[in-house]
């Protein structure tokens, strides 16, 4: 905090829509003066309290712990009460477009219908499953290491920022999405929980589960609490193998195929990997394979590149690898 309070002017283009009265959404412009210690929620409040009291948004705690006020600013997932306006000016300059987390789910202005989000939350049994002693005289013992191993997945505030930023969710409404998968991690890596296998079987279906992550890191970027959902999804991948719940399918064979291929060549045998992963399904790749072949893009077995010192790689795989399929 400097000795004097600094202010700046920002120019806002704000998404407006009321599904009761508007046929189409529109944008309204506002000019707002902000000071150095204000956050984006203060900007929303100023719009409502100083310019237009019909403007609607969700908010409650105003310090990043209740998860109500997720919005998008210049397409960036933002928990309004946790983002300093001056930081946003540094990122984007003083012109900002303010939109709801998801335009297609909007009810009114910044308020969206989160039904699908909560449905997916519910789908992963988001609670500890164990018989509860209703009158215990001791606690479960849990080592500091086991507590830290929750990797802050327990501080997810269900704001939905990651979910609505996820491109896989955008194009596939069945995908569980990063928030509910991070929640899955939260319980699956808690030593006290007893439903790990059950949850793994829920989240490792093709089409809706962990294998539909496109690995874009939008969720990590969007999370205001540092939960890093993609990291948790990765650990769920490894857990399905560790727990022997990985079904043999294109996704699991694909992951395992890397090890096999690296062991043989150091490099990846791209053609073989596709063939191994897909099994008979490889046939559907023939047209594109043909295109690639014509353009000299397919390494043939006889000229498959190999890493120098391949024996080192083989040795390391042998000594360092513990995963099984």
């Amino acid at each position: 905090m400097a000795d004097a309070i600094e202010t700046k002017k920002i120019y806002l283009k704000v998404f407006r829509f009321n599904h009761e009265t508007d046929y189409l959404p529109y944008y309204k412009n506002y000019e707002v003066v902000v000071s150095q210690d204000e956050v984006m929620l203060d900007v929303l409040n100023k719009i409502k309290w100083e310019f237009d009291s019909t403007f609607s948004y969700r908010r409650s705690c105003r310090h990043g712990i209740c998860g109500s006020c997720g919005i998008k600013v210049n397409n960036r997932a933002t928990l309004a009460c946790k983002e300093r306006v001056f930081d946003m000016i540094e990122l984007f300059g003083n012109e900002m477009t303010i939109e709801p987390q998801s335009r297609k789910r909007v009810i009114k202005d910044m308020v969206i219908d989160k039904k699908d989000f909560w449905d997916k939350y519910n789908a992963v049994k988001p609670y500890m499953i164990t018989a509860v002693d209703e009158h215990p005289d001791s606690e479960n013992y849990m080592s500091p290491h086991d507590y830290e191993n929750l990797k802050e997945a327990d501080i997810c505030v269900q704001c939905g920022n990651c979910y609505y930023a996820c491109p896989s969710v955008e194009v596939n409404e069945d995908y569980l999405g990063p928030a509910s998968l991070a929640k899955t991690y939260r319980f699956n890596f808690d030593t006290r929980d007893e439903a790990k296998i059950d949850r793994l079987d829920t989240v490792n279906d093709l089409g809706s589960g962990i294998w539909d992550c496109v690995k874009c890191y939008e969720c990590a970027e969007a999370c205001p609490k540092g939960v890093n959902p993609i990291e948790k999804i990765t650990y769920l991948h490894t857990q399905t193998f560790q727990e022997g719940r990985a079904k043999s399918n294109v996704a699991t064979r694909h992951a395992v195929g890397f090890k096999t291929s690296i062991n043989m060549h150091g490099f990846l045998d791209e053609g073989m990997l596709v063939a191994y992963s897909e099994g008979i399904g490889v046939l559907k790749h023939l047209p594109e394979a043909f295109k690639m072949f014509r353009k000299g893009k397919i390494a043939m077995p006889w000229n498959m590149p190999k890493s120098k010192n391949l024996d080192e790689i083989k040795k390391l795989i042998k000594s360092s690898s513990s995963a099984k399929f």
Partner: peptide
Amino acid sequence: RWIERMGAAFTRNNDG
């Protein structure tokens, strides 16, 4: 201890 048994994630001492 009841809320802990239900899953609350408390910070722990070295002895658990």
